[in-house]
């Protein structure tokens, strides 16, 4: 985040020499902030944020007094994860809205420039082709990062005023890691939609394709995986415990192909310190375990594969966009 702040300083102090990459990022950020679609997405996220905060604040007292819950001391984590089932929690909302945000910021990144005739003119300037692609990606991530960070800081501030409970360092780490995780998650959808914007000539086609992929993973993928597993799964009664666990793990691994699954797994572990494993645990494994919150580092170890998976998926999409774009004839 320090880098992004340094960039804003650059913008404000109007230093004379900004690299062509910096100039492009600056212009892209300006474009996004003024665009209607960003304002619409911003309002949507603000409303869900306000709604979830309202619900969690009104249930906070009850949750904090629930001594059976090992996490009851983490007021600020509870703010993000408490719900009375009338509304999903904030990270569940983000697992839906994050993809939309990423798609909205990236679906017409390249093809709109191409259709407007600005792409050829831009590439005839002394700039590298890849800095255009990178600037599009970086500018959108900068905005998303700023948005999430300011939301979370607002939440912390409001929590501090309303409850007066001082924040623990581990809570701050967890919340900041959650912000980074959310930015990475949106970054995956952003790089996917930028890749589609390079591949398809029309902005509408790339938007529909991106939304189709998103819908597939949110709605149909779970259904399909469940159907397949049910078809190949023998009668559970005839299986050994290890085999049941093996099948269960298989099901989970298949579900984790969906980025939203990775994100919710990781977000849950980060925001609920008592979550010890994302798969099934046997009784032997649980024996002797005291239900206490895990230290931050241990939670991070649990979600590390998820984070790596998300980063890898974004990198693959971005590399594909890069490959398609660098070799492309630029004439329309």
């Amino acid at each position: 985040m320090a880098g992004s702040l340094a960039y804003f300083n650059n913008f404000l102090s109007k230093q004379p020499a900004l690299s062509s990459f910096g100039v492009m990022v600056r212009k892209e950020v300006g474009d996004h902030i003024r665009s209607w679609r960003f304002i619409v997405m911003l309002l949507l996220i603000l409303f869900t944020f306000a709604g979830t905060m309202y619900v969690s604040l009104s249930n906070l007292g009850q949750v904090a007094r629930n001594y059976n819950d090992p996490d009851h001391d983490f007021i600020y984590l509870k703010l993000l994860t408490t719900s009375d089932n009338s509304l999903p929690t904030f990270h569940i909302f983000i697992s839906f809205l994050g993809p939309l945000l990423g798609i909205a910021l990236g679906f017409d990144a390249i093809n709109a420039e191409k259709n407007n005739g600005t792409l050829v003119r831009l590439l005839a300037q002394p700039v590298y082709r890849d800095s255009l692609l990178l600037a599009k990606f970086y500018a959108a991530l900068l905005i998303v990062g700023t948005l999430f960070l300011s939301l979370v800081l607002l939440m912390i501030g409001a929590g501090l005023i309303l409850t007066g409970v001082p924040m623990e360092a581990t809570e701050l780490y967890r919340i900041l890691t959650f912000v980074v995780l959310s930015v990475v998650y949106v970054g995956f959808w952003l790089s996917l939609s930028i890749c589609l914007s390079v591949a398809f000539r029309h902005a509408a086609t790339s938007a529909i394709t991106a939304i189709g992929i998103w819908l597939f993973f949110t709605v149909f993928y779970q259904i399909i995986v469940n159907m397949i597993v049910r078809a190949i799964l023998p009668d559970p009664a005839s299986l050994q415990t290890e085999q049941v666990i093996a099948y269960n793990n298989l099901l989970l691994s298949l579900l984790r192909v969906a980025p939203s699954q990775l994100y919710t797994d990781a977000a849950t572990t980060l925001l609920m310190p008592s979550v010890r494993s994302l798969g099934p645990l046997t009784m032997e494994q649980m024996a002797g375990a005291i239900p206490t919150p895990l230290p931050f580092k241990e939670s991070l170890m649990i979600v590390w594969p998820q984070v790596t998976g998300l980063v890898a998926a974004s990198t693959v999409c971005f590399a594909a966009a890069y490959y398609l774009f660098m070799r492309r004839e630029i004439r329309t």
Partner: peptide, 10 residues
């Protein structure tokens, strides 16, 4: 400097 045939602007 190059001005393409279908130059567009923002």
């Amino acid at each position: 400097g190059y001005l393409p045939d279908s130059a567009g602007f923002y």
